[in-house]
Simulated assay, not measured.
Amino acid sequence: MENQQRSDETAETFTWTIKSFSKLRNKLYSEIFFIGGHPWRLFIFPKGNNVDYLSIYLDAGDSANLPYGWSRLAKFKLSLINKVNSKMTKTKETEHEFNARESDWGFTSFIPLNEIWDTRKGFIVDDTCIIEAEIFVTKREHENQVDQAAKSATVAPVSTQVNVVSDNPSSKETSSIALGELVDFRGLGKIEKAFIPLLEEVCLRYPSLIESQQKRSRKFFEWAFTALGRVLHFLKTKKVKDMNDVLFVHLQDLWEELETFKFDLTWLEPHVQSALGMKNYMEKAVEVKKMKENVAVREMEIKRLKAKMASAEIDLEIAKRDLVKAEEGFKELDLDRELGYKA
């Protein structure tokens, strides 16, 4: 078996310094880094992935574009560095065969949140923490053949995946948006056709977008501008009324992924934050709508009661007139006196 699966083995370390840790939202990606000839990235849930623990994962950096049959067996260690006492650094080790369907793996319960936030522990100093990934990649011979075939094949349509990550891949929930034909963008890479007009428009306004990625590889350029195109396409095609909880989470994931490519996005961030802020607006709009409906119901009830009262007043006047007529020529008697008789 070993003769049939001769391996190339690579072990390297990536260090991720995270500043302003207390200001982080639900999910954060590291920049993309290369080990074993393949892009990787880390991501964390600083407030826990539905648990009261810091959650840390390793992700195949281009999971949306992985070819059919691709896989990497990787042993890796994830460490939360203790900046006060290195002997107290928290490290967990595991291995996983990454592929197009199971593109991320890690630890949902890495360290309790109350422990990482304890200033005496030394994991967060000056609102900064450091995470290290030591990756030992095994690339089997048959995987080399898959990679070579993928390079020579026609580029296939890509898909966007939003993953709810857990240690067990069988429990992963994935929603996919299939994209269409890929076309050349300025001779620098192939991008989803629907994104091209949007990218052309913003690149004319902000030339630094192209300049910031020109020194990157062709593949990296494609990843970066595909990520940018996804955000632009989302903002262009979605309406305020469409924004439900699923789309809010999806936009948040798209934006966090785009931020890893180090574009100057100061021009785009206000629009994204405005769209994300629509969640509060929609919740308020629902509340206001319910209150308006409640007021309308009360007004209708008042109108009904007023109409009933008007009808009752008319009935009262009629009853009074009938009483007056009935009393004409009528003399009341003492009903308690004896009928008697006279002798």
Results as ranks from 00 to 15, higher is better:
residue 106 G to H: 02
residue 106 G to P: 05
residue 107 F to E: 05
residue 107 F to H: 03
residue 107 F to K: 00
residue 108 T to C: 09
residue 108 T to D: 04
residue 108 T to H: 03
residue 110 F to Q: 00
residue 111 I to H: 06
residue 111 I to M: 14
residue 113 L to Q: 07
residue 114 N to C: 04
residue 115 E to K: 10
residue 116 I to E: 03
residue 116 I to V: 15
residue 116 I to Y: 05
residue 121 K to Q: 11
residue 121 K to H: 12
residue 123 F to N: 00
residue 123 F to T: 01
residue 124 I to H: 05
residue 124 I to D: 02
residue 124 I to N: 02
residue 125 V to R: 03
residue 125 V to K: 01
residue 126 D to C: 04
residue 126 D to E: 12
residue 126 D to M: 09
residue 128 T to A: 08
residue 130 I to L: 10
residue 131 I to F: 00
residue 133 A to H: 06
residue 135 I to A: 01
residue 137 V to W: 00
residue 138 T to G: 08
residue 139 K to R: 15
residue 140 R to S: 07
residue 140 R to L: 09
residue 141 E to T: 13
residue 141 E to L: 14
residue 143 E to Q: 14
residue 145 Q to T: 09
residue 145 Q to D: 14
residue 145 Q to V: 15
residue 146 V to P: 02
residue 148 Q to G: 10
residue 149 A to F: 07
residue 150 A to H: 08
residue 152 S to E: 13
residue 153 A to Q: 14
residue 154 T to W: 11
residue 155 V to K: 11
residue 156 A to C: 13
residue 156 A to D: 14
residue 157 P to L: 04
residue 158 V to H: 01
residue 159 S to E: 10
residue 159 S to T: 11
residue 159 S to C: 15
residue 160 T to W: 02
residue 161 Q to W: 03
residue 161 Q to E: 11
residue 161 Q to M: 06
